[in-house]
């Protein structure tokens, strides 16, 4: 199963490497988000406390929504998801492949966003790189797990562009709360390590529950 999933990731990346369309547009969109929030929040050259953590996570979530939509739009446009569904591969492998692809794309975006937000808001994100990576990784997987399933199932729906965020944001509120509070705990002085660990644990349990649920529901949802 994992082999099939990796094949799907490879297929998606082969297309992506050619055009780099989704990566570039997602990144630029995330940058615009950061700027909009910066101009909305910064007063007399000072950002409010925890603004850096909040802006980072908002940018990831907004850009993630866009990337989810674009990834499946590509499959829809080329009428290729039907072919993928007809392929003699387990449906769950297709889901895992798509999930991995989105997660890797978001990790690339985060590699640019974290230093940038840190630089603009003088936030010491890199003082605890491993803890931050754990929070970001767990948060990204949780968001992408729900997002991949919803984006895939909404593909047949005409109003998918607007329904995806409507459904995705309320359900992933635990991710944004845990992500922002955990990151803010890492930025606090002195660093609140216990708080960050607790939020990481909540994110990981969210991942376990929702990846399982998505694997379980993907097959009946994608069967017409």
């Amino acid at each position: 199963m994992l082999k099939t999933a990796l094949l799907i990731v490879r297929k998606d990346f082969a297309i992506e490497v050619k055009t780099r369309e989704i990566l570039y547009t997602t990144l630029l969109f995330a940058l615009s988000c950061v700027l909009v929030f910066a101009f909305a929040l910064v007063k007399e050259g000072q950002a409010p406390t925890d603004a850096a953590a909040a802006i980072l996570w908002i940018a990831i979530m907004f850009a993630g929504t866009l990337a989810l939509g674009r990834t499946f739009e590509r499959e829809r446009y080329g009428e290729t998801l039907r072919a993928l569904m007809l392929a003699p591969a387990p449906r769950t492998a297709i889901y895992v492949g798509k999930l991995l692809g989105i997660a890797v794309l978001l990790v690339f975006a985060e590699l640019v966003l974290v230093p940038l937000v840190g630089f603009l808001f003088s936030a010491a994100f890199l003082s605890h790189p491993l803890r931050l990576a754990l929070l970001l990784g767990a948060g990204t997987v949780g968001f992408a797990a729900v997002g991949t399933l919803f984006a895939a199932m909404l593909m047949r729906v005409r109003t998918r562009d607007v329904l995806l965020p409507i459904l995705l944001y309320p359900i992933t509120v635990p991710v944004i709360i845990a992500g922002v509070r955990g990151t803010a705990a890492l930025l606090a002085s002195p660093v609140e390590e216990a708080t960050a660990t607790m939020w990481s644990a909540i994110l990981i349990s969210f991942d376990v529950v929702f990846v399982t649920l998505a694997l379980w529901t993907f097959e009946p949802l994608m069967t017409e």
Binding site: F150, M153, R156, V157, R158, T159, L167, I171, L221
Partner: peptide, 18 residues
């Protein structure tokens, strides 16, 4: 309401996840 044909299944996923 706006999901078009087959929206019952999609709604079921929202119900389970919610």
């Amino acid at each position: 309401k706006y999901g078009g044909p087959g929206s019952e299944k999609l709604a079921a996923a929202v119900g389970i996840f919610g």
